[in-house]
């Protein structure tokens, strides 16, 4: 994996983890305003980062293939450690 791709994916992993963690907290504290604001802040950052990544490196989900060819299966899978 080239450095630029690795760095961008690392950032997506970090902001996604923020959402994974705070959404569990919100499940048991649905009226916590500061947690909700935190969620909204990182949701926006994550959406923008994913859009940028997919434009350069291809789809992260099979709903987001926007190339003439089927690029979903053309790069290494995450478990390969490439």
């Amino acid at each position: 994996m080239n450095k630029g791709k690795e760095n961008m994916l690392h950032f997506i992993n970090e902001v996604s983890f923020v959402l994974d963690d705070v959404s569990l907290f919100l499940d048991t504290h649905p009226h916590d305003k500061s947690a909700m604001a935190y969620y909204n802040k990182y949701k926006k950052i994550r959406n923008e980062a994913i859009k940028e990544y997919e434009n350069i490196y291809g789809p992260l989900t099979r709903y987001n293939v926007n190339t003439p060819d089927w690029t979903w299966v053309s790069s290494p899978w995450p478990w390969e450690g490439e």
Binding site: L9, H10, I12, N13, S16, F17, D20, P59, L60, T61, R62, Y63, S75, W77, P78, W79, G81
Partner: peptide, 14 residues
């Protein structure tokens, strides 16, 4: 469920 092409935490073992 939707698959995302990434691990929740990266694994790179050499």
């Amino acid at each position: 469920w939707t698959y995302e092409r990434r691990l929740q935490y990266p694994v790179k073992i050499t």
